[in-house]
């Protein structure tokens, strides 16, 4: 919650003030983004756009781009936060990528959300926009047979403007460094295990979203303080309007109706998941680096916990872990639902 949201005013007005503040703030920081490659003129009405912030993710990019191209994303808008591993050059060569560069602080930019809000407002208006990290892979009901445009056109026909996809942490069996990840490889050949239940949910009455925590990270790194564990609820797919703003990562957005992606009368609405390929062999260096930079949420508390945990050689796998098969498995377990998308 930003300062604006804490003013002693009625909740509706506070939410509106916060939304306007976020939009203004994003606009204000537009000069922090330097356009490297601008192919946005290729964007046609009705295209599905992906918005990504990254830092030193070169090795993940080929698979990431192929995955989302395969789903039906038409254009990618990347913000390169001062990468030093050649991510920028690689992206600049891609025909469907527009690229911005910045060396502004990740933390000072509200963990990159200022940049995302800015690009979303400028280019996302009227499009279905997918805001993800390079280690997040969208899986939704029927994703093996129906491309993303089928989903968005159905959502649109159902009068919905947003689609939830909870973050599902995937991990390998054995120590994380044991199986090296090669460029272009499907990360879920390695990190193919997940926690089937083990998620706690509560409702945030101010923003109206569900706050989901749990999974292997809470079980291993946040046993002593589960409340400070990472949030897993995400709303990455939104038919954007320039008046919208993401509040905290893609966990919640304003206006509030974008967060109302769940049924409160016992029914199930459609939902997907973002498979999170964070725990690969690349993770150890990354966590060491992020620990130095202290640019992450809550003073990189998360990374400190990982680092402590990982140097001890913690294995996230347990005998109750499930091996990932397909979206139907996730639906049977109850992590996602097809709702009424028959």
């Amino acid at each position: 919650m930003t300062r604006v949201a804490r003013l002693p005013l009625p909740a509706r007005i506070r939410r509106r003030a916060e939304r306007q503040y976020l939009i203004a703030r994003a606009f204000n920081r537009r000069r922090a983004l330097k356009s490297m490659v601008d192919r946005t003129s290729q964007i046609r009405p009705g295209d599905i756009l992906a918005f990504v912030t990254l830092r030193n993710e070169r090795v993940r990019l080929p698979y990431f781009l192929d995955y989302y191209r395969g789903l039906g994303v038409d254009h990618f808008l990347f913000v390169n936060n001062d990468s030093t591993d050649g991510s920028g050059n690689y992206l600049a060569e891609q025909p469907d990528v527009s690229l911005w560069w910045t060396n502004a602080g990740y933390k000072k930019s509200r963990f990159g959300m200022d940049w995302m809000n800015r690009l979303l407002a400028r280019y996302g208006h009227g499009h279905w926009c997918l805001t993800v990290d390079p280690d997040e892979f969208l899986v939704y009901p029927h994703c093996d047979t129906r491309p993303l445009p089928a989903l968005t056109s159905w959502l649109e026909a159902s009068g919905r403007r947003s689609f939830p996809a909870m973050l599902l942490d995937m991990y390998p069996k054995g120590a994380i460094e044991d199986q090296p990840y090669a460029e272009g490889q499907d990360p879920f050949e390695i990190a193919r295990w997940f926690d089937p239940v083990n998620y706690s949910i509560s409702r945030n009455s101010f923003y109206g979203n569900l706050w989901i925590q749990g999974g292997p990270r809470t079980r291993n790194f946040f046993r002593a303080d589960p409340l400070s564990g990472p949030a897993l609820n995400k709303i990455p797919l939104v038919k954007w309007n320039w008046r919208y703003a993401y509040v905290s990562s893609t966990h919640m957005a304003l206006p509030r109706h974008l967060n109302m992606v769940y049924d409160e009368n016992g029914g199930e609405m459609a939902s997907g998941t973002l498979l999170h390929a964070k725990f690969l062999s690349t993770f150890a260096e990354k966590s060491a680096e992020e620990l130095d930079r202290r640019q992450h949420y809550a003073n990189s508390k998360e990374y400190r916990a990982y680092h402590a945990g990982l140097t001890r050689g913690t294995d996230l796998w347990c005998s109750e872990s499930r091996e990932y098969v397909d979206w139907q498995q996730l639906e049977d377990i109850g992590l996602i639902s097809r709702g009424n998308w028959a």
Binding site: V261, Y262, D263, E264, E268, M269, G334, S337, W341
Partner: peptide, 20 residues
């Protein structure tokens, strides 16, 4: 499918089903 949309699976609490 309609039944799932309207009644859902009993005892399931998840990101898109969080009954009052």
């Amino acid at each position: 499918t309609v039944r799932r949309r309207l009644l859902g699976r009993p005892g399931l609490y998840m990101q898109s089903r969080f009954p009052r």
